[in-house]
Simulated assay, not measured.
Amino acid sequence: MIKREIIYTEKAPQPIGPYSQGILVENPSKILFVSGQIPINPETGELIKGDIKEQAKQAIKNLIAVLEAAGAKVEDVAKVNVYLDDINDFGEFNKVYEEYFGKSKPARAVVQVAKLPKNVKIEIEAIAIFE
């Protein structure tokens, strides 16, 4: 039987639309779909308005908070999608990304988009598979 559970944590920003922070599916392994995380400080609700490095760090921390709320960790991430408002930020973003995902190296796509929610520079989503 497939089990589906909504994941919510106060350690990541509240959803700003009709979606969940994450959805956990068990069949029998657990598969976690983490919604796109943007650089909002969950404690204050304020946007991080710094450069791409500062925004990327906060977005990744938010993503990790959702992973941990479901019982997963960074090493469980199998796929990451990254949306940048300026692909010229790719190199600087990659330095931050490597700090968090460098050892596990999940499959990844990075694309430039015309605009992101709240005019941030980055949004990041992930899929994790774990026991």
Rank of each mutant, 00 (worst) to 15 (best):
Y97N: 12
K53L: 03
I127E: 02
Q58K: 14
A114C: 06
E98P: 05
E68N: 11
A56V: 02
K49V: 09
E98I: 08
G45S: 04
K121Q: 01
A126S: 13
I129R: 11
V77M: 01
K57D: 01
G50E: 01
K61F: 05
F130D: 04
Y100K: 10
G91W: 11
A109M: 09
K105H: 14
Y100M: 10
E99M: 02
N81W: 13
K30E: 01
L47S: 07
V25K: 11
K103V: 08
E54Q: 12
D86N: 15
I87L: 15
E75S: 15
K3Y: 14
E131K: 15
E54R: 09
K61W: 05
I122H: 00
K103G: 00
L24E: 14
F90P: 12
Y19H: 15
V74F: 11
I31Q: 06
F33K: 00
E43T: 05
V80I: 13
E68D: 02
E68Q: 08
Y8C: 06
Y100C: 12
Q21K: 12
N62V: 03
Q21Y: 04
N27G: 07
G71S: 02
V82I: 12
P28A: 00
I87F: 13
E98Y: 12
I2S: 01
E123R: 01
E123Y: 00
I122Y: 03
I122E: 03
P28L: 14
P13E: 01
E5I: 13
L84S: 11
K103H: 06
K73E: 09
I38F: 07
T44Q: 11
V110S: 01
K30Y: 05
A126Y: 07
Y100F: 15
Y19G: 01
Q55R: 04
Y8A: 10
L67I: 06
Q58R: 09
S35M: 11
V77I: 08
I60G: 02
F33E: 03
I124L: 02
I38S: 00
Q37I: 04
V120D: 02
K11F: 06
P106I: 10
G45K: 04
I16L: 15
K103S: 12
A70N: 08
I122L: 01
A12I: 00
R108A: 12
G50W: 00
L67E: 13
E5G: 05
R108C: 13
A107I: 08
K118G: 03
M1K: 05
Y83T: 05
L47I: 03
K118C: 02
V111R: 15
K103R: 13
E43K: 13
V113P: 06
V77R: 04
V96S: 08
S29L: 09
L24F: 04
I60C: 00
P39C: 10
G91M: 10
K53C: 07
S35D: 12
A12C: 02
A109S: 14
T44H: 07
E10D: 03
K49I: 09
Q21N: 09
P13H: 11
K118E: 01
P117S: 06
E10F: 02
